[in-house]
Design a protein around this nucleic acid. Structure first.
Lengths: 138, 138
DNA sequence: TATTAAAGTTGTATTATACAACGATCTCTG
DNA sequence: CAGAGATCGTTGTATAATACAACTTTAATA
């Protein structure tokens, strides 16, 4: 098997694993969508629905519903964009920040478990290669 | 950011990327489910619905529908299990083998593109670490 | 042998997603 | 500067993958 074949196959398996452990037995309180959106909002300080849709490669209608859910659960609040009456800035509430931090911690712990037998170098290299792969997806 | 945090975040992103490129713009003809099932059947020569459900960590009802679809498209056929009247052995048809091979090739090519700037060692290491991660999921 | 368990199918519900239609607002061109 | 067309966001609808529950048939066990 070539490395490319190994990667593609293992990615397919990984996807299956991760979806099956995240969809119904979600880690922590946030589902993957919520987690990624909060992460993105946190990284940028604030973001519009459109910006989130672009960066997550989801349809704006999907993100609209997801952000509405986040707002309803009081993870985020929205302030009207002063420069554009159609648009909002979504910002995290302190509660949202807290939930995100907690969630990230739970996820990182899960990774620690899954890589318990790895060397620190392996974890480092794996993280870097994943990052590099994701950059090339864009 | 710790390596664990980097890994968990990049995995979340990767999952988003892969689902968005696989669900609606599926590579080749097979969707991910079909691909993984065929792969599994191929690896073991044949498999029952139950065995596939176990190894893919999906509900048996889900796999039942998916294998029915595979059968309907003539990628697989079923022969009754001589030792168990409730069960079938699913085997790939030559056509199914062909489609699987083609699909794997398309996927591997996609990986080649995505890792075009990587060194061969990086690809090798990444494939190995992914494999190791998946083993720990079980 | 009678009861319980297991394999598979089918019905139903949920969830994440995309696309389409729409209202409100913005931008740009004549 | 007014109207046409583009854009932001929401909501309606459709689809696909999934799980759970009910059921049938067959096997295993007590």
């Amino acid at each position: 098997m070539t490395p490319e074949e190994m990667i593609e196959y293992q990615l397919a398996i990984l996807l299956r694993h991760v979806t099956s452990t995240s969809i119904h037995k979600k880690i922590g309180v946030l589902d993957r969508s919520a987690y990624l959106l909060l992460h993105q909002i946190g990284k940028q300080g604030s973001a519009s629905v459109k910006a989130l849709a672009d960066s997550s490669k989801l349809d704006i209608s999907t993100v609209s519903r997801q952000t509405a859910a986040l707002e309803q659960r009081e993870y985020v609040y929205r302030i009207p964009d002063p420069n554009d009456g159609r648009s909002y800035s979504l910002k995290m509430t302190p509660y949202g920040e807290e939930q995100l931090a907690e969630h990230r911690k739970a996820r990182a712990e899960r990774i620690s478990e899954l890589t318990a037998t790895w060397t620190p170098e392996e974890r480092q290299v794996f993280g870097e290669l994943l990052t590099k792969l994701n950059l090339n997806f864009l």
